[in-house]
């Protein structure tokens, strides 16, 4: 997967938990939960969506490393083949 494909995947996964939001409109360096006003269950659903689409199983202690769109993309780029 290219970086752009991963970015698209992140957007798609976010759209799944926040259908009314436009992830591309938020600051990619801001906290996703704050920006999209999503709660911890939404966030877990987001992590599961990423897992489904990329195969990456993010351990709980790494959740903080996927707090922003940019950091989530870098995290996944490093782990997706």
């Amino acid at each position: 997967m290219t970086e752009n494909q991963i970015k698209d995947t992140v957007f798609t996964a976010l759209k799944d938990v926040a259908p009314e939001a436009d992830p591309s409109s938020i600051d990619p360096d801001e906290n996703i939960q704050d920006e999209l006003d999503i709660d911890s269950i939404d966030y877990l659903n987001f992590m599961m969506g990423l897992h489904e689409k990329t195969g990456v199983d993010v351990p709980e202690r790494d959740y903080a490393k996927l707090a922003t769109i940019n950091s989530a993309v870098s995290y996944l780029v490093a782990r997706v083949g």
Binding site: S40, I41, L44, M47, M48, H51, D57, V58, P59, E60
Partner: peptide, 17 residues
């Protein structure tokens, strides 16, 4: 919960709630 989640894949993880 922390220990329990360590053993669980993301699809089975629990939240404190």
């Amino acid at each position: 919960l922390e220990e329990e989640n360590l053993e669980r894949p993301i699809t089975n993880r629990l939240v404190p709630a």
